[in-house]
Design a protein around this nucleic acid. Structure first.
Lengths: 198, 198
DNA sequence: ACTTTAGCTGACATATTTGTTTAACTTTTT
DNA sequence: AAAAAGTTAAACAAATATGTCAGCTAAAGT
């Protein structure tokens, strides 16, 4: 039993380290040796626990993706008014992308290579519900009229882009790490103000 | 002389092919053989013209980046009112990202690995001018008040995200290629309507 | 205390990719 | 026609990364 505990420990250590290197630092081409070094374990342990580098990557990827999806589901299906729902999603999202800023970017490069794990069923259910709520707000006049898909795109753009492109934006716009953090903290309100009529 | 022309042709053919594979198709790990095959030339020609795969990549990358920068400069320093300036930038930008959707994403992964070629001098000049114009619009009351950096982030987010994340968004949101194209074409007006008060 | 076994390691074999070299062949230039 | 530049093919060396395997170690079970 406690053998299994130790197993879990090392296996998990490798997994978490790989996740950090891949999606926290954006080093998608990191070698098994680099991952092993970062985790402080022998390289062959990666093969021992995960068979191959590809499998490790796959597991880590699906892991991170599932985590994000669960949260999104939880918020979307909550009974809050739309604006509060979005506010909550922003909180969660900023937290998540702070830890793994490169996850979305990686998903983009993989999606077109056929490595996709999104559940289209769930996705369309969630989007449908989301679109309905957006239309209702437009009827109420709290947001300007447009196709709900466009509103959804606006929201996800305003939320995702600054975090997922941070490594590019921060130096390009001449910010220090601290300044950019401040900027991001202010963004939650900015985004809601931009999306909803004042 | 015409030897040089032929030289230019093949050299350019390789360059353009590599650019397409890297930043058009997002296959950042494409081998020299794959590039040569796609260009219909012998693999060793890549070494002949560019010494190494890395040099080729570097040249192609800087090339694409310079192209984008030139356009941006041209528009930013034009004498149009802000809203029209942004409209023009959107036109240019959608055109560019349609051709090389993966360019920005790649820049993100490279920026933090130290491979950065942005001119900070020029950047801060452009941003300064941009911020001033934004403040002027806020004074006029055509956009809601916020730090100009936030407005800039809003703009670049709304413009960039849907195109640079297209490979992810299109299937996730359940669009066909045609539907997504339509969506993007509508976006120019949507973005301006979202950023400026009605 | 002894055996078993999971966890772990070093060495090796293999595959992939890259860059170089040499020799031929073609086209262009002189 | 000769020379030069462009191009291809084949062969090779070197580097890098990956996966396997036999065997070692230390903890768990008996």
């Amino acid at each position: 039993m406690s053998a299994k505990v130790q197993d879990q420990d090392t296996e998990n250590l490798i997994k978490e380290t790989a996740k950090r290197i891949f999606f926290g630092e954006g080093r998608f081409n990191a070698t098994t040796q680099e991952i092993a070094d970062a985790a402080g374990v022998n390289r062959t342990l990666i093969n021992y626990y995960f068979r191959s580098r590809d499998k490790l990557f796959e597991i880590v990827f699906q892991d991170a993706q599932k985590c994000e999806d669960e949260m999104t589901k939880l918020i979307i299906f909550s009974d809050l008014p739309l604006k509060e729902k979005l506010a909550k999603h922003l909180d969660m999202f900023f937290e998540q992308t702070k830890q793994y800023p490169y996850l979305e970017i990686y998903m983009v490069t993989q999606m077109n290579q056929g490595n996709c794990y999104k559940d289209p069923e769930m996705m369309s259910t969630m989007l449908g519900k989301f679109y309905d709520e957006i239309e209702a707000e437009m009827d109420k006049g709290t947001i300007i009229r447009m196709r709900p898909e466009q509103f959804a795109l606006n929201f996800i753009s305003l939320a995702s882009f600054p975090t997922s492109m941070r490594p590019l934006l921060e130096p390009t716009m001449g910010f220090t790490k601290e300044q950019f953090d401040t900027l991001l903290e202010e963004r939650k309100d900015i985004i809601l103000d931009t999306l909803f009529k004042q």
